[in-house]
Structures are given as C-alpha cells and as structure tokens.
Design a protein around this nucleic acid. Structure first.
Length: 352
DNA sequence: CGATCCCGCCATCTT
DNA sequence: AAGATGGCGGGATCG
C-alpha cells in the first residue's frame, strides 16, 4: 500500500528501551487492565518474542503480573515500591552485601527436593529432573533482573560497574563465554530500566561503564523543573509519537538474505481493537514522557506536568523505602531534602 | 576496533 | 502434537 520508503534501519529505534517506553505509554492506565501478548505485539509493531522480554523485566519490578496464557495485567507504579522493598529485604537477608543468587525460599525448596530425591534414588548417577539448582529459572531474565536491582538496593554505593554487575549476575564463575552471554542480558535489562529512569548509565572515573541507581536520590531537582524531555541526552530530531509507528515491520536488520517467511504476529489479524475501554476520559494523563521519547514541546504543559507529577509520586513512594532503622542519617537527610523539593515542586505545579 | 545489543532459532514447558 | 515461553549467541551497529 503506502510506500514507506525502507527506513535505513536504525538500531536505536528498535531498542528494548524504546519499546518499553511505548509499552508503558500504552498500558500505564488503570490498574488491573489486561495485557494480551499478541495484542501488545501488534500495537507496538514488534515480534511476540520481544514482548516476553519486556513483561519479564517489568514483572521483576512488580509493574505487571502474569495472569495466564498470553495474558498479563497492569499493576501500576504504585506496586513498584512494594516490590523493591521486598527485593531489598531478600537481598539484605542473604549474604550481607553479597548478591543472592537464590532466594531463601528457593533454597528451602531445593533442599527439600534434594532430600526427597535422595530417599528414592540412593544409588547411581543423578539423572533426576533437576540435578543442579534449577539453573533454568536461575538464568531467566526475570531472575537476573531482580538480582540486578538487589545489587543496587543492597549496596552502599549507588554506582555499579558493568563488571561487578556481570559477575554478580553470574554466579561467580569467570568463564568468559558465560560472561559474554550474561553481559548481553545485562545490557537488555539495563536498557529497560534506563528508559524508565530507574537507573542511569555513566562511567566511573576510570572510564568503565557503570550504572547509577536513580530510584530516589539522583533524580535531581533540575530534572523535574526542566521537562525531562528536553535534557535527555541525544536530541533526536523526530522520535515519532506513539501510534504513528505501528508498522515498522520492514527495515529489518538486513540479514544474510531476506527472502522469506515473515511471521506476521498480531498486527492486522488482531482484528478486535483492544477491549472496550470504559475509561476514556483525559487521554493526556496517560501520556508521561519516559526515557528519551517525546519530542520536546509538542503537548506542552500537560505532558510536562504529568511527567513531573508522576516522577514525584514515584520518588515519594520510593522514599518510604528508607526506614530509620535501615538507613544511615546522612541518607535520611537527603531524603528529607527531596521531600521538601517535592513539596516545592508540587506547589509550583499547582500554580500553573 | 571493542562495546552494544537486536533478532530470531530452537530447546523446553504447557495445553 | 501444537502452542506458549524464553534461553541464547550470531553478527549487525554504534561510538
């Protein structure tokens, strides 16, 4: 039909980060809303496989929850602090300062299972279902993602290098091959969290790539007052608004040869347009600017306002994570400062 | 070039 | 068996 000239193919536009931004823009509405995998893939113009990546990572933070086959539900940002608290608790519980690879409950289960299996097979090799700790689950994106977050929540330093993170996500093995695989995953996860402004990519003085936890602290005041969008690194000319890009199916990455199959997932055969939407007022409220999307200026004050409000809400709830008995006075002072900032911003916003 | 990390093959788990 | 999930790493892009 329309001759969308083959876009040269820009890897950046296909990134998981952008996808997540769009995903959030699309689903950040009422808690409880269902999210169909095919539906999401269709709307976002990506393969189903990618949706799995997204929901698995978001689920690790409590943003969405699996409801059943092909179905997830939106739990909302209000759920995140709770999830983080739990992660922190878990992380602190095991090996103070060391990253936990297996949760306590998982360990108990494992022990129990092992005992049982021993009773039944006192002899020969262990050909039983799971000889090793169910390494499958242990390597899942969901699990890695949680451990990645624990790393930040349980560390005094909010700056973590790629190396540290990789080793942590990895059991400890230095196997370069295993390492390489793990780093790939780390990049995936980090990109997602970066686009959500949960973390930020930087470098150590020694130039090594590192990530900084933004959860509450580093989200500076300036960032609030100056419409995040404008000061986001790369000032991309056009980032297209959601909805304009539903079909970026073409312009693949130019594999060896292209002729062939094309498994169209969703898109047109998702005949039924989402589900009926009972709620439909004020579509703007759902349009916050996450990450690098959003062309500065377009929607004007509303987006900015909502963006600020959303971030402030996030920061406020996350602040509650820090209980006096768990954190040092200095950090508390900082949080108090943010509290003030929060109030100030709120006032400022109200005046608009 | 080394650092990133998209893409989709295909092993596994569910139905 | 068919469909749903999602590990994994080849190799294209980026800086």
């Amino acid at each position: 039909m329309d001759s969308l000239g083959l876009q040269p193919y820009c890897r950046k536009e296909k990134s998981l980060g952008v996808l997540v931004s769009n995903f959030l823009r699309l689903y950040n509405r009422d808690v409880g809303d269902l999210i169909g995998l095919d539906e999401a893939a269709g709307y976002l113009g990506v393969e189903r496989r990618r949706i799995y990546d997204v929901v698995n990572i978001l689920e690790s933070i409590g943003l969405v929850a699996r409801r059943g086959k092909n179905q997830y539900s939106w739990r909302g940002f209000g759920e995140v602090p709770r999830a983080l608290t739990e992660l922190k608790r878990q992380g602190m519980g095991e090996k103070f300062g060391i990253i936990p690879y297996v949760t306590k409950s998982e360990m108990v289960l494992y022990e129990k299972e092992r005992e049982e299996s021993l009773e039944f097979t006192p002899e020969d090799q262990e050909n039983s279902p799971s000889p090793k700790l169910d390494s499958k689950k242990e390597r899942s994106l969901w699990h890695l993602s949680q451990n990645f977050v624990k790393l930040f929540l349980c560390s005094d330093d909010d700056l973590i290098t790629l190396d540290e993170a990789t080793k942590a996500l990895l059991h400890d093995s230095q196997d370069p091959l295993n390492m390489r695989t793990k780093v790939r995953r780390l990049y995936d996860i980090a990109n997602v969290f970066s686009s959500m402004n949960l973390i930020e990519k930087t470098h150590t003085p020694e130039k090594k790539t590192a990530y900084r936890w933004l959860g509450a602290r580093a989200i500076s005041v300036n960032r609030f007052l100056t419409a995040s969008a404008s000061l986001c690194d790369r000032s991309e000319p056009k980032k297209r608004a959601f909805g304009t890009e539903l079909t970026n199916f073409n312009a693949k990455r130019n594999k060896a040869e292209c002729s062939k199959d094309r498994k169209h997932y969703g898109n047109q055969n998702t005949s039924s347009v989402i589900k009926e939407e009972p709620y439909d007022e004020n579509p703007d409220v759902k349009n916050f600017a996450f990450g690098s999307s959003t062309p500065a200026g377009t929607s004007g004050m509303n987006n900015i306002g909502n963006n600020i409000r959303l971030r402030l809400g996030f920061i406020e709830t996350i602040s509650s994570l820090y209980q006096p008995q768990y954190c040092n006075p200095a950090l508390f002072g900082l949080l108090a400062h943010y509290k003030e900032t929060f109030e100030a911003c709120q006032e400022e916003f109200r005046r608009k």
